[in-house]
Amino acid sequence: MGFKLLSKLLVYLTASIMAIASPLAFSVDSSGEYPTVSEIPVGEVRLYQIADGVWSHIATQSFDGAVYPSNGLIVRDGDELLLIDTAWGAKNTAALLAEIEKQIGLPVTRAVSTHFHDDRVGGVDVLRAAGVATYASPSTRRLAEVEGNEIPTHSLEGLSSSGDAVRFGPVELFYPGAAHSTDNLIVYVPSASVLYGGCAIYELSRTSAGNVADADLAEWPTSIERIQQHYPEAQFVIPGHGLPGGLDLLKHTTNVVKAHTNRSVVE
């Protein structure tokens, strides 16, 4: 069995187990497998329904001669939608809004960016022009300005110390501490036991640490421990890039980060 097929099978099995364990909360999309990078042309966006009122959005972007996937989250909030992270750029984010209108038909009224990198804030200006209120932590807003990236308009308070959590509509926002970046936030959907790890969490097929220019490698494993301790009931975990899975993604990420750190020390 090929690795790609095995990865998709694991996603399907995880979703099936969740649907059985929580039949009222989960209505997993039966329309197909989780979209992969090879299936999404740059400039297009796919939506994948995880649970009743919960979707991931998947886009792709060219970077350094390669094409990478990027995940975000959409959560229903009454007759409105909360968006977590842009679709990595203005063109993708405009396509995301169009796809949401086509498939869901509810307005996106608020959006949260989970850290300051372009795959999370690139497209904020498109959201703002569409009347979406954009939010991020003060740290993310400051770092985005320093980096020359787009800056969300509103500040999220109460997320300055490791372990801080605040309720934001249908989700809980959690600051686990520094990891992929010093400002990275985690998003949890309690009604569906869905954990969105953003770039602080890796997919299972990833074996290298990737972009760690703004990471705190020493603190990252401790931050992941905080996530595990705060959300032990999480059933569906979405990484910032690639295929979702279960809580095993947290341990896998820790292993990859520690291996990278150990290699760096040896070198």
Rank of each mutant, 00 (worst) to 15 (best):
1 M>R: 05
1 M>S: 03
2 G>F: 11
2 G>D: 15
3 F>E: 09
3 F>T: 10
3 F>R: 05
4 K>I: 07
4 K>N: 05
5 L>P: 05
5 L>S: 13
7 S>G: 06
8 K>M: 05
9 L>M: 06
9 L>R: 08
10 L>I: 07
11 V>A: 07
12 Y>L: 14
14 T>S: 12
14 T>I: 12
16 S>Q: 12
17 I>Q: 05
17 I>R: 05
17 I>K: 06
18 M>Q: 06
19 A>F: 10
21 A>I: 06
21 A>F: 06
22 S>P: 13
23 P>N: 07
27 S>I: 06
27 S>Y: 05
27 S>W: 07
28 V>D: 06
28 V>F: 15
28 V>A: 07
31 S>N: 09
31 S>K: 12
31 S>W: 09
32 G>I: 06
34 Y>C: 09
34 Y>L: 09
36 T>P: 06
36 T>F: 06
37 V>K: 08
38 S>Y: 08
38 S>V: 08
38 S>T: 06
39 E>S: 07
40 I>R: 10
40 I>F: 05
42 V>C: 13
42 V>D: 14
46 R>K: 06
46 R>L: 10
46 R>C: 06
48 Y>T: 07
49 Q>S: 13
51 A>W: 09
52 D>T: 07
52 D>C: 04
52 D>I: 05
52 D>H: 06
53 G>H: 07
53 G>T: 15
54 V>T: 11
55 W>T: 02
55 W>F: 15
57 H>S: 12
57 H>L: 02
58 I>S: 13
58 I>E: 09
59 A>Q: 10
59 A>T: 08
60 T>W: 06
61 Q>Y: 14
61 Q>D: 06
62 S>Y: 14
64 D>K: 14
66 A>H: 07
68 Y>R: 13
69 P>V: 12
70 S>W: 00
70 S>K: 02
70 S>N: 09
70 S>D: 02
71 N>E: 00
71 N>G: 04
72 G>S: 02
73 L>P: 04
74 I>L: 07
76 R>P: 04
77 D>Q: 06
78 G>T: 14
78 G>W: 11
78 G>A: 10
78 G>Q: 10
79 D>L: 15
79 D>N: 07
79 D>I: 12
80 E>K: 15
80 E>C: 14
81 L>Y: 01
82 L>P: 04
85 D>S: 01
87 A>Y: 00
87 A>V: 01
88 W>P: 00
89 G>T: 15
89 G>V: 03
92 N>G: 14
93 T>A: 02
95 A>N: 15
95 A>V: 13
95 A>T: 09
97 L>T: 04
97 L>E: 02
98 A>W: 12
98 A>E: 12
99 E>T: 06
99 E>W: 13
100 I>C: 03
100 I>R: 01
101 E>F: 10
102 K>E: 09
102 K>Q: 13
103 Q>E: 15
103 Q>C: 14
104 I>R: 00
106 L>S: 10
109 T>W: 12
111 A>E: 15
111 A>F: 13
112 V>S: 03
114 T>D: 00
115 H>D: 00
115 H>P: 01
115 H>V: 00
116 F>C: 03
116 F>S: 14
119 D>E: 02
120 R>W: 02
122 G>E: 11
123 G>V: 03
124 V>L: 13
124 V>Y: 03
125 D>A: 13
126 V>M: 06
130 A>G: 14
133 A>I: 11
134 T>C: 11
134 T>N: 02
135 Y>H: 06
136 A>I: 03
137 S>D: 03
138 P>Y: 15
140 T>E: 03
141 R>M: 12
143 L>V: 04
143 L>S: 12
143 L>A: 09
145 E>I: 11
145 E>H: 15
145 E>D: 07
145 E>W: 11
146 V>D: 12
147 E>K: 14
147 E>P: 05
148 G>C: 04
149 N>I: 15
149 N>R: 13
149 N>G: 13
151 I>F: 05
152 P>K: 03
152 P>L: 03
152 P>C: 02
153 T>F: 15
153 T>W: 07
154 H>R: 09
154 H>A: 13
156 L>M: 10
156 L>Q: 03
157 E>C: 12
157 E>T: 09
158 G>R: 10
158 G>S: 12
159 L>H: 04
160 S>D: 09
161 S>T: 10
162 S>A: 14
162 S>D: 14
162 S>I: 06
162 S>P: 15
164 D>E: 10
165 A>M: 15
166 V>F: 07
167 R>D: 09
167 R>A: 08
168 F>L: 07
170 P>H: 05
170 P>L: 05
170 P>Y: 04
170 P>E: 09
171 V>I: 09
171 V>E: 02
172 E>H: 05
173 L>P: 04
174 F>E: 00
174 F>K: 00
174 F>S: 03
175 Y>Q: 02
176 P>Y: 00
176 P>I: 02
176 P>K: 01
177 G>E: 01
177 G>S: 04
177 G>D: 03
177 G>A: 01
179 A>K: 03
180 H>E: 00
181 S>A: 08
185 L>Q: 01
185 L>W: 02
185 L>M: 07
186 I>D: 00
187 V>Q: 00
188 Y>H: 05
188 Y>P: 00
189 V>K: 01
190 P>W: 05
192 A>H: 06
192 A>W: 06
192 A>R: 10
194 V>F: 02
194 V>C: 00
195 L>P: 03
196 Y>I: 02
196 Y>L: 05
197 G>E: 01
199 C>Y: 03
199 C>E: 00
199 C>R: 01
200 A>H: 04
201 I>Q: 02
202 Y>A: 13
202 Y>I: 07
202 Y>W: 12
203 E>G: 10
204 L>H: 15
205 S>Q: 14
206 R>K: 14
206 R>P: 04
206 R>L: 12
209 A>I: 06
209 A>S: 13
210 G>P: 09
210 G>S: 14
210 G>V: 13
210 G>M: 10
215 A>L: 10
216 D>G: 10
216 D>L: 14
216 D>H: 07
221 P>K: 14
222 T>C: 05
222 T>H: 13
224 I>E: 02
225 E>F: 11
225 E>A: 14
227 I>F: 04
228 Q>P: 05
228 Q>F: 05
231 Y>I: 06
231 Y>P: 00
232 P>F: 05
232 P>H: 05
233 E>M: 08
233 E>R: 13
233 E>C: 05
234 A>K: 03
236 F>P: 04
236 F>M: 15
236 F>R: 07
240 G>L: 03
241 H>R: 02
241 H>L: 01
241 H>A: 00
242 G>E: 03
244 P>T: 05
246 G>N: 08
248 D>Q: 15
251 K>N: 07
251 K>A: 06
252 H>A: 07
252 H>C: 01
253 T>N: 01
253 T>K: 00
254 T>V: 11
254 T>D: 08
254 T>G: 11
255 N>L: 07
256 V>Y: 03
257 V>H: 04
258 K>C: 14
260 H>K: 06
261 T>H: 15
262 N>L: 06
262 N>H: 05
263 R>E: 08
264 S>V: 15
266 V>K: 11
266 V>S: 14
267 E>H: 15
267 E>M: 12
